[in-house]
């Protein structure tokens, strides 16, 4: 499997990171180098092996249905780059 410029553009878009076109080639090269290296995993026989889903050998702990948080709007909004009338504000989204 090999990454080309178009793939770099596609994943950069998925990841919402602007990659100027003149950097796509170089990045494709770097990513291919890493991918080629990790592809040695194909050698490992994993027939019948379950993928590891959690390191800790335990099951999911559950909490009670009690309201314990909230009413901290000032804290929630304190670090916002743009806010108004108790909302976060972002450039207008046209649907």
């Amino acid at each position: 499997m090999s990454i080309d410029k178009a793939t770099v553009a596609k994943i950069a878009h998925l990841a919402r990171i602007k990659v100027p076109e003149d950097e796509q080639e170089r990045l494709a090269g770097e990513l291919n180098q890493i991918l080629h290296w990790v592809e040695q995993l194909a050698e490992v026989d994993t027939e019948g092996v379950e993928p590891m889903t959690s390191v800790a050998a335990q099951t999911l702990r559950q909490r009670e249905d009690v309201v314990t948080e909230g009413d901290i709007r000032d804290q929630v909004l304190a670090n916002a780059p743009d806010r108004a009338a108790g909302f976060f504000a972002v450039p207008k989204v046209v649907e």
Binding site: M1, V38, L41, A42, V44, T46, E50, P51, M52, T53
Partner: peptide
């Protein structure tokens, strides 16, 4: 299209 070949494979090797 790549999840199985990379991520899933890696999690299996991790089990190993």
């Amino acid at each position: 299209g790549y999840y199985d070949a990379y991520y899933l494979k890696a999690q299996k090797v991790r089990s190993r």
